[in-house]
Amino acid sequence: MLKVKNLNTGYDNVPVIFDVSFEVNEGELVSIVGSNGAGKTTILRAISGLIRPFSGEIEFEGKRIDVMPAHEIVSLGIAHVPEGRHVFSKMSVRDNLLLGAYTIDSEAEIEKILKEVFEIFPRLKEREGQKAETLSGGEQQMLAIARGLMSRPKLLLVDEMSLGLMPILVDKVMEILKEISKRGITVLLVEQKVQEALEMADRAYVLQTGKIIGHGTGSELLTSDLVKKAYMGM
């Protein structure tokens, strides 16, 4: 579904990502794990068109998307849940969600998706009329994910959702991602919390200083020496 081939990118001519290739198949939950500064966020930004590759190709359902502007990529069915949540803090939860449905025109359709999203996130339903800034960190993260779902994406890109959440909430949000994946949405998760991310992923890639140094199924990687040594201090 998503194919990244020999991607090189970065900011203002400072290269961050070196020759990265990976793919995500339909229905999978794929993680990219790596420590701070490995370039995880940069890869997601390149996929959703917020930055351009220096070289290499990004393909979505057979179409090259690395030359398309961000807003067109969204309408193809890729939703990006940005790092640090970025909810529209002065707007109500409902308005935040409705804005997520930007690419959908029919009001009835929007209501339908809204209902589904509230099914996954009953907590947000309770807080529908509240301003987003009054939500807790975990609820804001849920709102950001829910907003991503509002565009009926085929592929959901989730960036570092554990950031600033207490461990029990991290588990909770991970559960939700699994639930989303079960509903048939492909998920690409980028995460620093290596253990949790590997446990839930179908497949995962390990990123270090801009290069992919290993990949495999989540459980394979969990037991591999490479990951143990590098990220779990064992």
Partner: peptide, 21 residues
């Protein structure tokens, strides 16, 4: 109006949900 306010709140988030900012 909503799109503009979304852009004001966070240009990046607005772009990530598909608004041509």
């Amino acid at each position: 109006g909503f799109y503009l306010k979304a852009i004001r709140e966070s240009n990046e988030a607005a772009e990530s949900i598909g608004i041509n900012t």
